[in-house]
Amino acid sequence: MNACHKLVFIGEPGAGKTTCIAALSDIAPVTTDVGCTDDLARRKASTTVALDYGEMDLGEQGMLRLYGLPGQERFRFMFDVVRDGAMGLVVLVDAASAQGLDGLAGTLATYADELRQRPFVLCLNKHPDPPMAFRERCMAMLRDQGLVAPLLVIDARSRSDLAQVFRMLCLLLDHGDYPVLDGERGGA
């Protein structure tokens, strides 16, 4: 039976989770976007309220399942649904928004315990060259949570950028030790 790998995208609303999955998925992504009714409506028309889902057929190397989860604490329970077999996470930040850092703070506060146990890559999206001060703030926020991860600047619409993210995640998996339960890697 072919292996099934899971990749989880998390981040604030508007960080690019749905865009990443749409760029990678072989199937039409399953989304749970609904119209925004709160302050978020000023930034985007709709947002993910449960999860986004997509799939990438890897041929003989199995299937890559793609999940996009909201970063807010109230949606934290969704991670329990996709945790088993997750090879790693991609933490997305809207680097073009003044709220990007606040969103990252919320995401880290919500997911820090999971991020300590699994490889993840911090991706700054929507800005081709985020200011150094922005990058430093992001890294400082990771350090404050006792987290260490590579930071990449990406365009979530770019398949080659996402390939680099995946390559980095695999580098971490190949060389790192993560207290992932046996059977999770490449599991269901």
């Binding site: 190397q61 080659s160 695999c170 580098l171």
Partner: peptide, 23 residues
Amino acid sequence: IVHGNVVPGRWRALATRVGRLLG
């Protein structure tokens, strides 16, 4: 951590596969 059926370097192979699919 050694997993029963995990081959060293297999993630690199997976990354190569995904990279190829993504161009």
